[in-house]
Amino acid sequence: MKDMGLLSQLVYYFSHNGMYVLSQFNQTFLVSIYGVLLGAIVGIPLGIWISQYRRLSPVIIGIANVIQTIPSLAMLSILMLGLGLGQTTVIVTVFLYSLLPIIKNTYTGMLSVDADVLDAGKGMGMTRFQVMMTIRIPLSLSVIIAGIRNALVIGIGITVIGSFIGSGGLGDIIVRGTNATNGGAIILAGALPTALMAIITDLVLSFIEKRLTPKTSSER
């Protein structure tokens, strides 16, 4: 092993532990997705809610901002005290960090809907619910998705660090590499798939974002 180049070491690692890396990849991905999904389930309604009751927005966004300022390793450790080791703690952490981008984007998206369009909708006899479903949400959907995309990229980073409190995943491989002598190739074997995951998710979601942007022209 020692006399092999870094690249061949990496190839060697993948060829021998391919399935293992894949399963860790899966695990990391799922933990991040779960966390962000929870964040979306809570954050989107919260964002909509504070866009209706604007007085609450500084409070809610302020809280989410404070959460964001806590270093992720610290957050993981604090939550570990309460929730113990394992994936649950990591999912909760990802959830907490995804709140800010999701709430903020939902709120901004809601407020960016043209007031005249809303006035026309209400004035023509739409109920509040209809205004929400046919005007507000469709017109702000792309902004909301952009928030989720942001949250997911942050989430993947946190999940990798989460291996310190025993959630497994690609972080485990990286940690192992740091502990081994000459573990450069192992670190890369964990880090490259992580980066790849972040890039691919970002691309996929930006594609979805574009698709969900309402058509405003018959040309496309």
Partner: peptide, 30 residues
């Protein structure tokens, strides 16, 4: 109020057409 508004036409200065709906969908709204 909702029924009332559906029975009264409403035109505003800044037009207020739904940008994400076709002209047909806009006209068919009420």
């Amino acid at each position: 109020p909702v029924k009332l508004r559906r029975s009264i036409g409403y035109v505003i200065q800044n037009i207020g057409l739904m940008p994400h709906m076709t002209i047909q969908e806009n006209i068919e709204m009420v």
